[in-house]
Design a protein around this nucleic acid. Structure first.
Length: 302
DNA sequence: CTTCACCCCAGTTCATTACA
DNA sequence: TGTAATGAACTGGGGTGAAG
């Protein structure tokens, strides 16, 4: 949860304007502390960001944008808009929603998938949505593609849409300037970014400023970025061991210019022995331990 | 067609009070 | 002491309608 000051900084909006939008148009309805202070959840921040975009980029008046937002939310909450979840355990509910999102995406029903995802965020919050619902969607899409049960187009469509939803959250978390900046990417030719994206999001949520370059990133020019922006940690993910020599060479070159930069290597491409000249940089922890690893890392650098 | 007064909308400022 | 809440008031832009 975030204070109005933090939201103001994140969205580059004066606090008075945020209050005016709430009081005049009911744009958002943040929770309050016992003393009456506003506390904004990620969904409130997303709503404000959406409203700001409508006003600034589409020229819609704030009153009209707020009406659109309310109408959209009312439509989403209408009975029948979403399958009513039968009484069940949390894991079953996660599996069911994850399955519904996957099936919608598999059928290229992007609008429906987005509404299901919005619905999930409003019900379960973002932690559960990431780990219990959206990550399984990505894993299932990857498996289906590998086993020939999904086409390349379907796998790309699913990955693209879910990735966009992930990356929206990059801008929501406050940055702690005392923490090192991170650069994360998959080298050119490597297109599988799911693990990298998840890890980068965790870094971002922990307060690091993350330069997320995504998949298929040419290595030329990265040295300049690392120097110009004083990058402290470089995260590289590959699924294919064939990329290891190229990555090793990049690390060697970067370390010769910037010895203090720390490298973090992840993905199936680094699994197994003797795949890289920098085995100490390989993140061997499973995804569920990544947050603990980051907490330990931050504890060491602060 | 132009001018002017009026109104509405949206953002901002200010004063006051209370909390962290 | 800085931050946040509330409410009133101010400001500027834009739309509208009457009068000339």
């Amino acid at each position: 949860m975030y204070s109005i000051k933090q939201v103001s900084t994140m969205l580059d909006m004066p606090t008075v304007t945020i209050r005016a939008w709430e009081n005049r148009y009911g744009a958002v309805n943040p929770l309050r502390t016992e003393s009456g202070y506003r506390m904004y959840c990620p969904e409130d921040i997303e709503d404000l960001r959406w409203l700001k975009e409508q006003v600034e980029q589409k020229g819609i008046s704030i009153s009209q944008a707020a009406r659109l937002l309310k109408a959209d939310k009312a439509a989403q909450s209408k009975a029948g808009s979403f399958p009513v979840l039968a009484p069940m355990g949390a894991d079953e509910a996660f599996d069911q929603l994850s399955g519904q999102i996957y099936e919608a995406l598999f059928e290229f029903q992007g609008e429906r998938a987005n509404k299901l995802i919005d619905y999930g965020f409003s019900i379960y919050g973002y932690d559960a949505m990431f780990y219990k619902i959206l990550v399984p969607v990505l894993v299932r899409a990857g498996d289906a593609w590998q086993h020939g049960q999904a086409s390349v187009a379907q796998e790309h469509f699913i990955t693209e849409l879910v990735s966009r939803r992930f990356l929206q959250f990059f801008h929501l978390f406050p940055i702690h300037s005392y923490l090192p900046k991170a650069l994360s990417f998959c080298p050119d030719g490597e297109y599988h970014q799911v693990g990298l994206m998840l890890f980068s999001l965790l870094l971002r949520r922990s307060g690091l400023d993350v330069f997320y370059l995504g998949p298929n990133t040419p290595l030329d020019g990265l040295l300049h970025i690392i120097g110009a922006h004083r990058i402290g940690i470089v995260c590289i993910s590959i699924t294919d061991p064939d990329f290891v020599p190229k990555v090793d060479e990049f690390i060697r070159l970067t370390s010769s210019h910037y010895p203090s930069v720390r490298f973090l290597l992840g993905g199936p491409g680094f699994e197994g022995e003797n795949t890289t000249a920098y085995p100490n940089s390989v993140l061997s922890e499973p995804p569920e331990k990544w947050q603990e690893w980051i907490n330990r890392f931050i504890g060491r650098v602060v």
